[in-house]
Design a protein around this nucleic acid. Sequence first.
DNA 1: GTCTATATTTCGATAGAC
DNA 2: GTCTATCGAAATATAGAC
Lengths: 203, 203
Amino acid sequence: MLVQSLNTEQLIIESARKHFAARGFSGVSLQDIAADAGTTKSMVNYYFRSKEKLFSVIFLREFQLLFSSIASFLLEDLPLKEKITNIVSLDVDRLLKMPELPVFIMSEMHRNPEIVLKHLEHIPIDQLLLQLDKQIRRETKQGIIRYIPPRELMINIQSLTIFPFLSKPMMTGRLGYTEKTFTALMMKRKKDIVDTIWKSIAV
Amino acid sequence: MLVQSLNTEQLIIESARKHFAARGFSGVSLQDIAADAGTTKSMVNYYFRSKEKLFSVIFLREFQLLFSSIASFLLEDLPLKEKITNIVSLDVDRLLKMPELPVFIMSEMHRNPEIVLKHLEHIPIDQLLLQLDKQIRRETKQGIIRYIPPRELMINIQSLTIFPFLSKPMMTGRLGYTEKTFTALMMKRKKDIVDTIWKSIAV
DNA sequence: GTCTATATTTCGATAGAC
DNA sequence: GTCTATCGAAATATAGAC
């Protein structure tokens, strides 16, 4: 395999992604991004016109990453419990690879809600929730679970999955976790989350 | 009741709290803070010497607010289920009053972990967890619950309680919630959270 | 496409009058 | 205690040579 060196635009994107995720929009200067990409601020403006536009590009990519595959998992033809298992497993794996993603999304979403809403418009949330609602009602009728509003089910799943990554600095800093034990906890936690969710709705 | 006008220092603190919480340390200028407090940047430096010192004052106040009373609830002599009920209820009430608090703590914790760790040193976390561990083992022996490591129990409680506030912009923006229905959801959710937690550990 | 140089603004902080 | 004025540094963005 060739060691393909990236072009300047790609280097800038990768550097910007890293810096924005670590310190947010206003915590990063074009100088930081350019230096880390081995080029100058002028090149950043040349490719992306402005800091805002560069940020928008980065944010969109990360945002889609976080929400894309959940949708396809929800639409699969599987029992609810298996869907939940798949979503949790996928999310934990992905978050372990990019643990700074949630706090990036969260803080920028509060700083600038409009940018999120604009991107969310392209995701058929209502349809996904309706679909999920049908399945919940079906399995309720079959006596498998008790009814739970689909939005609340999703909030519970996301809460138990994402929150530990948001409080990771506290866990590794003072609660006695290291990088290794944190990863181990999260791998074990996949099963715990599904168990907790399922016990809360199982008949 | 007299309409007591606050002095300049208090006005600056209140303005700084609001702005820092909304946009973080580097997203706010002393100019913003001063203008909103009806004074000038000079006065901010006069009272607090530097932006860093001002921020530290604000952060410490908010941080203690978030963690103070959990400790006392944990130390009370009550059955575990009642402790959980009390903690969840208190947290939800407080977060409804200051919904921007979690994202403020979370993002600044990631941008500057040291400041958090310094404040955490004064809280006897190990002792609290040991105390909780004893109670869990006791109620396990009594056949009330199955054993769960105290840190994981606390993570689950905090996850289900705090996460909805972190994703509030998404819920009110696109998931069909308004301020009123969000508040209603969270009030109802108090009971749901305790139920979910309890079912996950009950025998 | 890439760089240097620079224009322009804004920021944090200080000096000094009152 | 409070303000105006200002300094020096750093930021975004642009102009222009190559």
